[in-house]
């Protein structure tokens, strides 16, 4: 039995929330630097160089990488041998409020989509909890910016659309988004499941390591095909043309109904921020 104290959880989560906004992880930096080496368009090279310089300034001077410090998204894996004598969602929200207030992060959440009154502490977070076996609590955090979130899309394709239909839909979403989601982007693609499951696994795909590959060979093949097709669009950094439209494509899949082929595309900007803590 792993009994986790509330204070410890709040402090650890507040720490990763603040760090995620300031310290872009090494794999994302490596992707950006590789893109800068390979880019042939001069204006695009300049943009990629600014992006690389920006993340260094952010880390060294502890300034947020981007002023859009996002909506706080958590993916939590809760082991069956973990004991919590408090409300996990309330504790995660307390950590978010602490980090966004004390860490000089922007508060971007309004209490209702129509009355649009700011909650002033960036809560509530969006929290997904999955029960797993084991004695640990794994908490993954991503601050999700709206520029790229707003360009995300879902389609309920039919089985006949298949692999080619998925590629067509994803490339169309990227083309129509153009410069709006701050390319070079990372694409989280969810295929299968139901309407909401596809969107959820697409979001979760964005928290994968940038240099990993899907376990399933079909998903892996789709990742490679999409990476090639998206980078052939010439959307380019900030939509101003170039070789670098996406840094990575992550496909997650789930079984689905005999009549369905849901496809969700969650777009992440080049500030592919995420951190995790295991308690």
């Amino acid at each position: 039995m792993n009994k986790i104290a509330r204070d410890r959880l709040v402090a650890e989560v507040a720490r990763i929330v603040e760090e995620a906004n300031i310290d872009l992880d090494g794999k994302a930096v490596a992707c950006l630097k590789a893109a800068l080496r390979n880019e042939r368009n001069e204006l695009a090279q300049g943009i990629l160089a600014e992006i690389v310089e920006n993340q260094e300034i952010a880390r060294n001077e502890r300034i947020p990488i981007c002023q859009d410090t996002g909506v706080a998204v958590f993916f939590v894996e809760l082991g069956n041998e973990v004991f919590l004598d408090f409300n996990l969602e309330a504790a995660l929200n307390e950590a978010v409020a602490t980090a966004y207030t004390k860490g000089y992060l922007r508060k971007s959440i309004v209490r209702h989509p129509l009355d649009r009154v700011n909650t002033k502490d960036n809560t509530p977070a969006v929290i997904h909890v999955r029960p797993v076996m084991g004695s640990t609590l794994r908490i993954r955090f991503a601050p999700k910016g709206a520029g790229s979130e707003n360009m995300s899309a879902i389609a309920m394709l039919t089985p006949a659309d298949g692999f080619a239909g998925i590629v067509r839909f994803v490339v169309d979403v990227v083309r129509r988004a153009g410069g709006k989601p701050c390319p070079p982007i990372v694409l989280g693609v969810g295929i299968g499941g139901t309407f909401e499951k596809a969107a959820l696994i697409a979001k979760e795909a964005l928290l994968r390591e940038l240099d990993d590959e899907a376990m399933n060979p079909r998903d892996r093949e789709l990742e490679q095909a999409l990476y090639q097709a998206v980078n052939a669009t010439n959307v380019g950094p900030m939509g101003l043309s170039g070789d670098t439209t996406c840094l990575a494509v992550k496909v997650n899949s789930y079984p689905c109904h005999i009549a369905s082929l849901p496809v969700a595309v969650n777009i992440q900007c080049h500030a592919a921020r995420h951190k995790e803590v295991i308690l």
């Binding site: 002023q67 922007r106 101003l240």
Partner: peptide, 27 residues
């Protein structure tokens, strides 16, 4: 246009900032 997602770099090019209207809107 200016490159999106380089807010830390751009903050170094700002010498001063003052609110001139709608302070209740915060950011």
């Amino acid at each position: 246009v200016v490159t999106g997602g380089i807010g830390a770099l751009l903050s170094k090019r700002v010498l001063s900032a003052a609110t001139v209207a709608y302070p209740d809107l915060g950011a």
